[in-house]
Design a protein around this nucleic acid. Structure first.
Lengths: 204, 204
DNA sequence: TGACATTCATACCGGTTGGTAGGTATAACA
DNA sequence: TGTTATACCTACCAACCGGTATGAATGTCA
């Protein structure tokens, strides 16, 4: 029994190593530009192992969205928002924290979710629907938090929470996109401040 | 002389045919995903002709940014804004016009400028700086229009035109990006309405 | 008319890609 | 202990990629 458990750990470990190396490579070069050979040479995993766990490159990409990106958005952007009483203050905190933690390299690579959306949405329905699921969860989380904020008297009852949620996600992704192309943290924080101003304009 | 003129026309025509086919292919598949063979087979131009006018694939891509995308942003988004007295009303008009003219196919392919920015900025400085030049011109145009709007009493003097210009471009591109992934004109118009609301909040 | 440059057209090249075939080492189980 | 399944590993493949070498029309001009 203990040996079975150990094997399972090892098994998952190899899979996880592949998955995380794939995430890095895709983040850096896009899905089409990502090379399986480079993913393998960045680890000490062989092609046989990769194709043992993932039937195709496409399925590997899907797994990155489902198991890494989805989790990342959930923990970074959704969970802390849902725990707060006042969504506007909470969002400001999240944005500022994200702004502090982000490195120049991260800025250069951009938001991995947005990268995949822009590259793959028109080319592959499997990618599109998976990315869309993550975006939907994100928007729904914001909607829920702002509805609660309206009930608690923190958010103006005039605002349409559905439109606002879309606008927030759009401006965050747009902001990251501009900063990525400008390769400038200054653009990111400047744009982030405008988003914060926008959030403040939604107060009750 | 007349034959010289004709030749020049022909010469430019071949170059232009290549350029526009390249624009379509890049718009549909990204720069890395764009295949020179497909660009050629979508026209009746041969590889010899292509490499006569463009030394590398990269230079062909640069020319698409410099000669097609730049012009498109200028005519569609900058020029009409600079002609108006009231930039907010003008911007609303431009957004609504863009919303009316855009097709489902356009939505699916997304903003070609943003596509290239997200794909190529971290990989090639030549692309990045060219795309950045277009974005800078766009933002500068918005800044200029809003400054004029402040002088004319249409725009609140409280707003920081630099931040606002960045925020507008970011939310427009983010909005297009979300709609592209959702493959939904509804998302686009919904998000567009939020941007219009934001613009209205900047009035004097 | 002959020399030269432009504008292509065709055939080919080395390198890389995602993917596969076939074998092996190890562990689980009867 | 023999059987079977899992978890790899190595070597290889056809397809496609961007790019090039060579040459043929065609036009330009002295």
């Amino acid at each position: 029994m203990s040996s079975t458990a150990r094997d399972t750990v090892q098994q998952l470990a190899t899979r996880q190593v592949i998955l995380e190396a794939a995430y890095e490579e895709i983040h850096a070069h896009g899905f089409q530009g990502a090379s399986l050979s480079k993913i393998l040479s960045s680890t000490n995993v062989t092609k046989g192992a990769l194709y043992h766990y993932f039937p195709t490159k496409l399925e590997l990409g899907y797994a990155v969205v489902d198991e890494i990106l989805s989790e990342h958005i959930q923990q970074m952007w959704i969970h802390p928002l849902l725990e707060a009483e006042d969504p506007i203050t909470a969002f400001k905190k999240i944005i500022m924290q994200a702004g502090n933690e982000i490195t120049e390299d991260d800025i250069q690579c951009g938001c991995p979710l947005n990268n995949l959306a822009q590259e793959m949405a028109p080319k592959d329905e499997g990618f599109r629907s998976r990315v869309e699921a993550v975006y939907r969860a994100w928007r729904k989380g914001i909607e829920k938090a702002f509805l609660k904020g309206q009930e608690n008297g923190f958010v103006s009852k005039d605002v349409n929470v559905v439109s606002v949620a879309t606008m927030i996600v759009a401006s965050l992704e747009g902001c990251m996109g501009l900063a990525k192309n400008a390769q400038s943290k200054k653009v990111l924080t400047q744009c982030g401040r405008s988003i914060v101003d926008y959030l403040e304009s939604l107060r009750a």
